[in-house]
Design a protein around this nucleic acid. Sequence first.
DNA 1: AATTATATGTTCTATATAGAACATAATAAT
DNA 2: ATTATTATGTTCTATATAGAACATATAATT
Lengths: 250, 250
Amino acid sequence: MHETKADKLAEISPAQNYLLAALPAGVKQRIYPQLELVKIPLGKSLYESGYAMQHAYFPTDSIVSLLYVMESGASAEISIVGNEGLLGIPLFMGGRSTPSRAIVQSAGCAYQLHEKGLQEEFNRGGDFHNLLLRYTQSLITQMAQTAVCNRHHTIDQQLCRWLLLSLDRLGTNTLNMTQELIANMLGVRREGVTEAAGKLQRAGVIEYKRGHIVVLDRPRLEELSCECYAVVKRETDRLLRYLPSRALHH
Amino acid sequence: MHETKADKLAEISPAQNYLLAALPAGVKQRIYPQLELVKIPLGKSLYESGYAMQHAYFPTDSIVSLLYVMESGASAEISIVGNEGLLGIPLFMGGRSTPSRAIVQSAGCAYQLHEKGLQEEFNRGGDFHNLLLRYTQSLITQMAQTAVCNRHHTIDQQLCRWLLLSLDRLGTNTLNMTQELIANMLGVRREGVTEAAGKLQRAGVIEYKRGHIVVLDRPRLEELSCECYAVVKRETDRLLRYLPSRALHH
DNA sequence: AATTATATGTTCTATATAGAACATAATAAT
DNA sequence: ATTATTATGTTCTATATAGAACATATAATT
């Protein structure tokens, strides 16, 4: 048990995070030495509403949800961040905090970077700066689409969208999360997720068992999802296609 | 009629837009000569989904909504921009376009700035850069809150929130917009707005008549609104409190 | 092996909103 | 003045989801 965990940690590298991987050599030289690998367990809160942040996090194999909790206690996810992105946007946009919380939705690792290191490199105004702003723009797209999705689409459709977003960030066809957790993220009742997931299971699209979901038919899942998944994916691909490091190859 | 319009144009100045007003003298000297005052009529589209932008707009007395239109034709507003902000965020964040549209919701004027001038000043990395990023952060807050609001709050509450957002940006207690238009923004049926507005009128909070709304009791309107209005206002005030020009007085 | 905790399944009623069809009133156009 | 257009009001039914109460099944703990 102990050894497996150690092995897993050894497998992790900054290059697993797309943003870190995309940095040009010069930036890597300055940033990589400042990165600290941390394990982030399920349910951990990286940021609380209104509290000043001190670190940015670049997930490698973990997923973190940004979610709002309302006065009534009801909650809803506004975006999801995995190895394609980073957490801590207000550190460079300004404000150092947000009204939202950041909760680990799938345990794993992330590289931690202190605000000072982040801001110093950001303020150089080069590729790092531009990459972070482009990623932020893609996150804006995701939030905007979530707003519209919440307004117009059914739980059935939203569950599909959400599973796809999570799959993409984990790079597997297996998710470890309970229906209760998913319900909290979507901002709906657990019973609603049970029904929607039951339909998907009976249709042979997914298979699940006490917090363990296997996606059997991804194309079908994409068909059953609302357009929101594809819109966000297309836009994110467009925004992050010409990453600094790739530009070197052109 | 002709004279009144001319008078109105003469009254407009860049200082009516909070962002333009907040710029330090040096930036003003470079930016103001590049600004072109334009009239923007109700319903005009400033940006279309997926089309590259060529100008940023700083509204003075107009309101513009960012809205998504779905495949089904259904729409929903994701944020609202008036004299506290600017349109054209992808010009400095990257991407030059978004999946959303920008539709004039309340006619008036705005100062137009060509992308080149915007980018040149932004790339200097000074107060202009920081101010625009902070404003973007406040817009992110608004979008996130809209997502949650769409999930959990009633039409009655959302109508109040929306009226308050619009009032703040116009600086009056009068709005000129039909229930049909409001319904499109909220992403609900026109009938739903008729009912909600009817309740507010019977309660003496507003008075309306064919596209003309007068707010009689603003404190009551704030009480009837969901928390979303206050959360966004508080956060926006926090983010934009220490504007560059104000910093000079400290 | 027995017990407890956790995750999921089922089923009821209540409610907000959608969808639809049509009525009425105010303004604009002829 | 008459007609057309636009904005608002009303009232049906249908439906998705919430709220609630409880059953069952699987895993963890003792």
